[in-house]
Simulated scan of single mutants.
Amino acid sequence: MKNPWNKASILLESLIALSMLTLCVLFYQGATLNLLKQEQRQYEKLRGTRALYEEVREYRIHGGKLSRKLNYGNEVYHVEFTKNLRQAKVTSSQDEVVIHWHSQSFHID
């Protein structure tokens, strides 16, 4: 004679395995999305640093205004220099990058 609990235990075991698999997939998806967001933030900061580097180089060679507005794709950057060129700052909607010059070196915040 067949045991009716055997079919129920197989169903229960299958539901538990499916729920565990679903939780693992959801956890993996959340971790992947978090890593992609971090990568995007780092990329935006790198773009801001690159824009600041280009503007500092241009300012040191050609001079010009102490405050500038740059458009890179969809992002708008504001670059500001101090008169003695001891500090330069670029700000965007998400990030702010500052460079401080000392006598023979510089420091990026």
Rank of each mutant, 00 (worst) to 15 (best):
M1A: 11
M1H: 12
K2V: 11
N3M: 01
W5L: 09
W5N: 11
W5I: 02
A8R: 09
I10Y: 01
L18P: 00
S19F: 07
T22R: 02
T22K: 02
T22P: 02
C24K: 00
F27H: 15
F27I: 12
F27K: 15
Y28W: 15
Y28V: 06
A31M: 12
L33Q: 12
N34D: 04
L36R: 14
K37M: 06
K37H: 10
E39Q: 13
R41I: 05
Q42H: 14
E44S: 09
K45I: 04
L46Q: 08
L52G: 01
L52T: 01
Y53M: 15
E54V: 11
R57D: 08
R57Q: 13
Y59R: 13
Y59S: 06
Y59E: 02
I61A: 06
H62C: 05
H62Q: 08
G63A: 07
K65F: 06
S67A: 13
R68F: 05
K69Y: 00
Y72D: 06
G73F: 03
N74P: 03
E75Q: 13
V76F: 05
H78I: 14
F81Y: 11
F81C: 03
T82Q: 13
K83H: 14
K83R: 15
Q87Y: 10
K89V: 10
V90R: 06
Q94S: 10
Q94T: 09
E96Y: 07
V97P: 03
H100D: 04
F106C: 11
